[in-house]
Simulated assay, not measured.
Amino acid sequence: MKDKRKILTIISLILFVILLFIMNRTFDSYEIRILNLCGIYVVLGLSLNLINGFTGLFSLGHAGFMAIGAYTSAIFTMSPELKQMNYYLKPIIPIFKNIQLPFLPSLLIAGLMAGLIGFLIAAPVLRLKDDYLAIATLGFSEIIRVVFTNTQSLTNGALGLKGLPKYTNVWWSWGMAIGTVIFMVLLIKGSYGRALMAIREDEIAAEAMGIDLFRHKIISFTIGSFLAGVGGALLAHLLGTIDPLMFRFLLTFNILLIVVLGGIGSITGTVISAVVVTVLMEFLRVLDGTMDLGFIRISGIPGMRMVVFSALLMFVILFYQRGIMGTKEFTWDWILNRKKKYTQIKG
């Protein structure tokens, strides 16, 4: 049975890569952009779900870690000429002036920098619980954004950075998404994952079983921050321009929406929700403009797509209060067991 699952997993990955290749060749630039955003939001959704869903911590600071990753990657990938063009009010710090690295090292450095800041923030903050933790992480996120707004020689302040190399493509965004899914599955199935879920369910019982609560929470928060930094870097190199206003609380809310809608504590649910929410938000954009149905012309109402999207969200939450998947995960047993039952009935 285990061999069958492995074979099915490998076949599905190969088919998905083939599908990505076909979509990359046939989709136009707008559709490719949406496809890239889906992959990036899978990474971001899983990173927040690790903290909020699997560990039971209520963090609202994800936008701050995304900003760290985005700016770090941008500074390391920009050419000296591009830096000179962007930093015209105040020159960049000399140590970064002539540094230019390929995308992969910059991506890893971005994640490590976000993880390091996440580790430093986690040490004092994770002694808090529930609403107090949420307020503290939100406060740190806003502090990071304000610092970036006022450090002209490092981040170019409120002007932001423009003309970033657009390295992010289908293979980078979905390669990182697939890698994150595999990492999360292995983590959650391992001893660390079981310890994190034990902390989520009952901290007192987990501590009584010998689990070091503080150490495991810090590990979870640091890994989540690292992945958020990678997601922020991917987003920066997809858009080609960043500024501090991009990384407000609303961005964290969008990722939290994906986690809650998919199911708090479900990898499968987060992946499904990230794709559905991203595609639906773009698909409903037609409601904001004038619609010509042939026999009638309907004037668009600005903001209508958000009204419809909110109504659909309320509908889903009413009928699926724990999200699309709850805490369940997709397994090949669903298919194999059905096939076995069908064979027994037919026999």
Rank of each mutant, 00 (worst) to 15 (best):
L104Y: 09
K2W: 15
L15W: 01
M1P: 10
L261E: 02
S266G: 14
T9Q: 12
K4L: 11
W174H: 08
G179C: 11
I204F: 13
L19M: 12
E203K: 09
Y88W: 10
V181Q: 14
F309P: 01
D131W: 10
N52V: 10
K83P: 03
F221N: 00
G289H: 08
M291T: 14
I40D: 00
A198S: 09
S12H: 15
S73D: 00
G229L: 15
G39A: 11
F54A: 00
T343Q: 11
I258C: 04
Q100A: 11
D28I: 11
V170E: 04
L89I: 08
L44W: 04
P165M: 01
Y192T: 07
P102S: 13
I218S: 07
S225L: 10
K129P: 01
A228M: 06
I301M: 07
Y30N: 05
A67R: 02
T180F: 04
I182H: 15
T290S: 08
R285S: 07
M209N: 05
F309D: 01
L227F: 09
F27V: 07
W172A: 04
F249P: 03
G210F: 13
G111D: 09
F315T: 13
A206H: 10
A206K: 02
E203R: 14
R215S: 09
V279M: 10
R145G: 00
L245Q: 13
P80F: 15
D131M: 15
M281V: 09
G303Y: 12
I317C: 11
E81P: 07
W332F: 15
N337I: 15
I11G: 05
G303P: 12
F226A: 14
V275A: 09
L213V: 15
L336W: 05
I188A: 12
A136I: 06
I92K: 11
E201W: 11
M1A: 08
L50V: 05
A274V: 06
S225P: 11
L13N: 01
N98Q: 13
L138C: 14
T270H: 08
Y88C: 03
L15N: 07
A311Q: 02
I242H: 06
S29T: 13
L15M: 07
I40Q: 01
K217I: 00
I267T: 06
I10G: 05
G64P: 03
I40A: 08
F309N: 06
A158Q: 06
F247N: 01
I10M: 13
F309M: 01
K162N: 14
I178N: 12
W172P: 00
N86D: 09
H237L: 03
G160Y: 12
L50I: 08
S12I: 04
I75D: 00
I117E: 00
I14F: 12
T252I: 13
G193W: 04
R285E: 10
L116W: 07
G115V: 13
P165I: 09
K2G: 07
I117H: 00
I301H: 05
F54P: 01
P165D: 02
I255G: 14
M246W: 03
Q152S: 07
A198G: 10
L318I: 08
K339L: 14
F103R: 03
G210Q: 14
L50G: 00
G115S: 14
I182W: 04
K97R: 13
G289M: 15
W171P: 03
I218C: 03
L44A: 11
I32P: 00
L164A: 06
Y87E: 00
I7Q: 06
A136D: 06
D333N: 11
L239T: 09
M325G: 10
